[in-house]
Design a protein around this nucleic acid. Sequence first.
DNA 1: CGGTGTTAGGACCCTTATGA
DNA 2: TCATAAGGGTCCTAACACCG
Length: 282
Amino acid sequence: MELRDLTIFTTVARTKSVTKAAEQLGYVQSNITARIQHLERTLGTPLFHRRPRGVSLTSSGETLFHYAQRILALCSEAERALQDTQTPSGQLRIAAMETTTATRLPGILARYHEAYPNVELVLKTGSTNELINAVLHDDIEAAFVAGPVQHPQLETVAVIEEQLVLIGRDGRLELAPTDKATIVAFREGCSYRKRLEQYLDHVGITSRQVIELGTLDGILGCVAVGMGISMVPQAVVEQSRYFVDVSYLPDEFGHIPTVLIRRKDAFLSAALSKFIEAVQPM
DNA sequence: CGGTGTTAGGACCCTTATGA
DNA sequence: TCATAAGGGTCCTAACACCG
């Protein structure tokens, strides 16, 4: 069992397709088929169920997938540890929620880049749940997510306490328990969406419709034309080019911490170490 | 004798083409 | 969409030669 085989195996498992895995890895499909078959022969057990539209993991495959992810993550970490020097350099993969990316991050990234120009910053965005999983799977080294985060494998650094506000237009913020609320929000897994739904529960609004959008700009735009309501940090509203009405929330709903998370057991590169210093306080 | 360089053969990995 | 066959290129290894 070689690292290359595990890379191929995990890519097939993630994409649920031999063809897609081949495209991602820059191989042809037949080679992926052969490598998977070789791995199955070596291990003496089938790893995938072959289906007309792709493949899915067998129970043995699930077990190997778990170990393969850990092995590959450890190798990647070892490479970074050996490449690391006291001078921050190399690639730093971080991620943040859309709202943090739009408000808090540009300034800190600009200062960091100026201080450490040899660090190649790779930034992704996603929901809190997606980013927690990405850190746990070593897809990224650290992420800004909505707190609190309590996970035995994660270390958190408090970054800022966001003031959350309810936004809407054309009287949509005047909510009554009998109303049907239209929520404009990110997909499931977004902490602000969850907080908004908790708030609506609190005020007794159970009838609601959700419009899911993939970008913050889209959400603000839809709210600005009166499609529905949303909940975002006040900083987002302040920097937005859209005009929306704002309603402040009770304390138990109106504050949410943004924290930086990283895996406790992961190697702390000089680049990440300096980045953590740079975000305290943001 | 031990270490190093060269070489030939085989194993392995990849591709294209094609079938189910 | 995945599996198989055939062929080519690369890599690995054993055997041998050479040198200090």
